[in-house]
């Protein structure tokens, strides 16, 4: 009976603590790595330039345009959700979700630039973002996933 009692009380507690510790360590490590990667890519010389302008200046008018896009699907993890749940009780910035979405947006833009670069473009105009929740909207669902899509018009030169 003693061991049963121990298991009954300790199991959920130990499981949660294990998940939280794993989440904290891996989340910290992966986020740092990811930001290092994003910043290195963004500042790499010769990157395709992106502009939110709807139309390119006439001087740049190219012979060919193409739709380019970059998409990222991210999922909230147990740990980030745990912090967010606590945060929602007291209010304030949901830091754990903010950094996640920031990384997703920047990663999506980088992927769009990579696509444009592969197609031989030097600039992308009319860049827009879309965000769609693709799972986790119902209360029962355990984790939520979000797609961040960046798209624009690549100007492909003819040289």
């Amino acid at each position: 009976m003693g061991s049963l009692l121990t298991l009954q009380f300790l199991f959920p507690l130990l499981l949660a603590i294990l998940l939280l510790v794993t989440g904290y360590i891996s989340g910290r490590y992966l986020e740092r790595k990811h930001y290092e990667h994003i910043i290195a890519e963004e500042t790499r010389p010769g990157q395709v330039m992106v502009f939110p302008l709807r139309l390119p200046p006439p001087s740049l008018s190219p012979p060919e345009t193409a739709l380019v896009m970059g998409s990222v699907v991210i999922s909230v993890d147990y740990f980030k959700r745990f912090i967010a749940t606590l945060r929602m009780l007291v209010g304030g910035r949901l830091n754990s979700y903010e950094s996640l979405l920031d990384r997703a947006r920047r990663e999506a833009l980088l992927r769009m630039r990579a696509e444009a670069e592969a197609m031989g473009a030097k600039e992308v105009f009319n860049v827009k973002y879309e965000t769609a929740v693709i799972s986790g909207r119902s209360a029962q669902s355990q984790v939520g996933s979000v797609e961040v899509l960046a798209y624009g018009t690549a100007l492909i030169g003819k040289d």
Partner: peptide
Amino acid sequence: INYVSNGWQKDFVLLVVGF
């Protein structure tokens, strides 16, 4: 600007302990 650097790590300590 769009995120607080090391924000959720601080949140974690403050919220978990304080809360």
